[in-house]
């Protein structure tokens, strides 16, 4: 700030400096232009191409497209294929149950955070953020060790005499579900905790001073206020678990097909790009549909809380 007096702003800036200042002050759209260009080139155009590939017959030779004609074949084929329906239904139910279970296991942690002291909060934050810093594959691998034939669960069950021979847990629907819930749990807890830390704790105190029970306070004060966090967490967990292929691939065995593993096989192994495009588009559309429903539900509940305040 020492050089303020010598700054050209005093003598009235020239046009070049004015532009530069406008650029740097961030009042114009200019600072965002590089981002917009990159997003258009690397996201918008590819999506349009994906759309065009999904609605055309193409020939691929050595990783490059040689001919392309418009057709609805791939979409109608996909919609009449029972494999698509079972796969998408499986993905959807898996993702929805993962989201519900993450909320069930995650919300109590957030409540503990809301009522806990400084150290409780710090421990919760560390335990939640730490897993996110390690790879999802590493966290999935842990479940191979735990649920495998010679894994922790079978060892404990055999020791306790619950079973006589090792249970087959790996490569089942349950293994996938357990892995999904544990891996996405931090993603549910973080938005909840963020909402809780923005709460005015005096509201909780006031509620209790007015004679409300702890559960009553949870139900009438904390829960409605955390609705936006629940919405964010649910949206994140749903998107991730609906579109992951690591967990189904590793814990479900080779034959556990969800929408994501299906896309992977179509694009990478069988090189059916049009099919892969249609599956990708279906995945995206169904995912967005559920996200819209989640956000409508969140708005409904948030609006309801606000209405009661008035």
């Amino acid at each position: 700030m020492a050089d303020v007096t010598s700054s050209p702003a005093i003598s009235g800036p020239g046009l070049g400096e004015k532009t530069l200042d406008l650029l740097l002050s961030g009042r114009g759209i200019w600072p965002a232009v590089p981002s917009i260009i990159v997003l258009v080139v690397v996201a918008v155009i590819p999506f349009i191409l994906l759309l065009s590939l999904g609605f055309s017959d193409i020939e691929v030779a050595r990783g490059e497209i040689v001919s392309q004609t418009f057709s609805l074949n791939h979409l109608t084929n996909a919609l009449s294929d029972s494999l698509y329906w079972t796969t998408f239904k499986r993905s959807l139910s898996l993702a929805l149950s993962t989201t519900a279970l993450c909320l069930l296991f995650g919300y109590p942690v957030a409540y503990l955070f809301a009522v806990g002291g400084r150290w409780t909060r710090r421990v919760i934050l560390i335990l939640t953020i730490a897993p996110l810093l390690t790879s999802g594959i590493v966290r999935t691998y842990a479940w191979l060790v735990i649920l495998g034939g010679r894994g922790v669960v079978n060892w404990a069950f055999l020791k306790l005499g619950i079973v006589d021979s090792p249970l087959r847990i790996m490569n089942t629907h349950w293994a996938v579900l357990i892995g999904m819930v544990q891996i996405h749990l931090p993603v549910m807890i973080l938005p909840l905790v963020a909402v809780m830390s923005r709460h005015d704790n005096r509201l909780i105190e006031a509620s209790e001073n007015l004679g409300a029970s702890r559960l009553g306070t949870l139900r009438t004060i904390i829960f409605p206020m955390s609705a936006p966090g629940i919405g964010t967490g649910a949206a994140l967990v749903f998107t991730l678990s609906y579109t992951t292929f690591v967990v189904p691939q590793l814990l479900g065995g080779g034959n556990y097909l969800n929408a994501a593993t299906m896309i992977y096989e179509q694009v990478v192994f069988s090189l059916e790009w049009s099919k892969g495009s249609v599956t990708s588009l279906l995945l995206m559309v169904t995912c967005l549909a559920v996200l819209v429903m989640i956000s409508l539900a969140t708005n409904y509940f948030t609006g309801w809380t606000k209405g009661r305040d008035a």
Binding site: L49, T243, I263, S280, L283, M284
Partner: peptide, 8 residues
């Protein structure tokens, strides 16, 4: 979804 962006 990241997978869709990747394919695109």
């Amino acid at each position: 979804p990241g997978i869709v962006l990747g394919v695109a």
